[in-house]
Amino acid sequence: MAVGHDHGDGHSHGPTLSKDAPEEERRSKERAIAIAAILTGGFMGAEVVGGLISGSLALLADAGHMLTDFASLILAWLAFRLARKPADWKRTYGFDRFSVLAAFVNGLSLFAIAIWIVVEAFHRLRDPSEVLGGLMLWVAVGGLIVNILAFWVLSRAEGDNLNVRAAALHVMGDLLGSVAAIVASLVIIWTGWTPIDPILSVFVVLLILRSAWSVVRESGHILLEGAPRGFDTRAIASDLAANIAGVARAHHIHAWSITQERPMATLEVDIESGANAQEVRLEVKKRVQELTGVEHVTVEIADGDARSDHG
């Protein structure tokens, strides 16, 4: 058996967003996370005080959400900071995967928040309490302004990064919570009907849970070394055998992602007798890249009669 590997030209295992992404792109995302954290953390205290004084569950729920958002944004920011550390012999891919772990934790925290809000809303509906609609309105308007600014900053930097996307989802939940609090306060001011406060709180929860599940599912898929989106090992094996001259069989095909932006693949190719191993390897690598968009492809050539050079 002759074995050869092709890792692709110019590939580095260092912590980059993607093969050709500049470091400035990473830093811009890191700055966006930091700005959003400052905005969220700065207003959180005011919302807690306003919620306690006004008696509004919508405000308290939003304040609790902002507290977890602040922690989540700090975690997301820390993930970018850790990703700067270079790869070493122990961690050959560096710390890029930490950002996926941060996204997974942030997604799960949204479910914890949702459970707390639903339970509290149930208690409020059973035992309604007085809500100061005027104070609630002003605090909610302030929260809306802060959340719009934070979401705008994050949405400009989001791209395909799961970590930033999870952070933006947290802020979106806050933004919707502020809108719900404004609507609830206006209803209370005009009609005095306080059950609108917990009802709208639950409505906001239902709006964000679908997106929260999406983040948890995608980040969990990466953590479990699942294949990148659109990577079908069966289709690739059939395509290579049918379209690349000299390929007898493609097998042991594996694909995974370090982060959402760093997919990788390995495969073994049995070549026909007399085929040039180096040429087949290059053609297979090119074809897999065209079919899947995965830049880092490792190809192993195996054939008893073929001569293989290491690329």
Rank of each mutant, 00 (worst) to 15 (best):
L17G: 02
R126F: 14
T68G: 01
H65Y: 08
A255Q: 00
S201T: 11
D309V: 14
L186Y: 15
R156P: 04
H13R: 12
E218D: 14
E130Q: 13
E218T: 07
Q278F: 10
L57Y: 03
G41I: 02
G311V: 14
A168G: 13
H252C: 03
G311E: 08
G159D: 08
L57I: 13
E295Y: 00
Q289A: 09
A36Q: 01
A32C: 04
G293K: 01
A168M: 07
S214A: 09
W193L: 14
D69E: 08
L240S: 02
R234F: 05
A21Q: 07
F104A: 01
R84D: 04
E23G: 15
G177V: 11
I53N: 02
G226C: 06
A150L: 12
S18N: 04
I188M: 05
V205A: 05
H7M: 00
G143A: 09
A245W: 12
E130L: 11
A180P: 11
R26L: 11
L291I: 06
L154V: 08
Q278S: 05
N147F: 12
L224Q: 04
F151Q: 15
A157W: 13
T292D: 00
L206N: 02
L223G: 08
L17S: 03
F231Y: 05
S129P: 08
A102E: 01
W152S: 15
S54V: 07
L39R: 05
R31I: 14
G173E: 08
S99D: 03
L59P: 09
A87W: 09
I113H: 05
R84S: 13
S238T: 06
S308H: 12
F104I: 00
H7P: 01
Q260H: 12
D239Q: 04
G274A: 04
S219N: 05
W190S: 09
I258T: 08
A237Q: 10
A32H: 07
R307I: 08
G293R: 00
L137A: 15
G4S: 09
H252W: 04
E25Y: 09
I115C: 11
D20T: 12
P22G: 05
G55V: 06
G134P: 13
G8N: 03
E24P: 10
R249I: 06
H221P: 06
R262T: 01
H170C: 02
S28E: 14
V269R: 02
A237H: 14
R217G: 03
V153A: 04
G14L: 12
V216A: 03
V3T: 14
G55K: 06
A168K: 14
D174P: 10
E279N: 13
L57T: 07
V164I: 11
I244A: 01
R165F: 10
R156T: 11
S219I: 00
N106Q: 08
R287L: 00
I271R: 02
V299L: 01
P86T: 15
M44E: 02
L291R: 15
I189H: 07
L57K: 13
E218G: 07
H251L: 03
E261L: 11
V288Q: 00
W256A: 06
K286W: 09
N161L: 08
T194C: 15
I35H: 05
P195C: 12
I33D: 04
N243D: 09
S211R: 07
V3E: 14
A168P: 04
G142E: 07
R281G: 01
S12N: 03
W152K: 10
